[in-house]
């Protein structure tokens, strides 16, 4: 399908360069956890803000894991296609079920 440079055939010195990046991500994840916990004790204007902040940090952390640990930052389009479809459907599942509450008659 497409012929870019493969993520798998890095020569070995390349991998050792990656190792530093892995450590960086590890530290970022630890820090992110501390920030999430701390932020949850800050009384923002409303609970919704707390939720938004925590989910935003979680999304950043998850993106780091997916992009670096799972090598998604340099993956093939076949895989991206799978994931795009999946995420679209997952969002559909979330939003459409929640939409049931947008009317006053629910349950």
């Amino acid at each position: 399908m497409n012929n870019e440079h493969s993520a798998d055939d890095h020569p070995h010195h390349d991998i050792s360069k990656h190792v530093r990046r892995y450590m960086g991500v590890f530290l970022a994840l630890l820090l992110g956890t501390v920030v999430t916990v701390a932020a949850s004790y800050i009384p923002f204007k409303s609970n919704e803000v707390n939720i938004a902040v925590a989910l935003a940090i979680a999304t950043v952390k998850a993106t780091l894991v997916a992009a670096i640990f799972m090598h998604l930052s340099a993956e093939r389009w076949t895989i991206y296609r799978f994931l795009i479809i999946t995420v679209v459907f997952a969002i559909g599942l979330f939003s459409l079920t929640a939409l049931a509450f947008s009317d006053h008659i629910h349950r």
């Binding site: 999430t36 916990v37 949850s40 925590a54 989910l55 979680a58 952390k61 894991v65």
Partner: peptide, 9 residues
């Protein structure tokens, strides 16, 4: 990473 804030915090 998602479970933790959603359930604990």
């Amino acid at each position: 990473i998602f479970l933790f804030p959603v359930l604990y915090l």
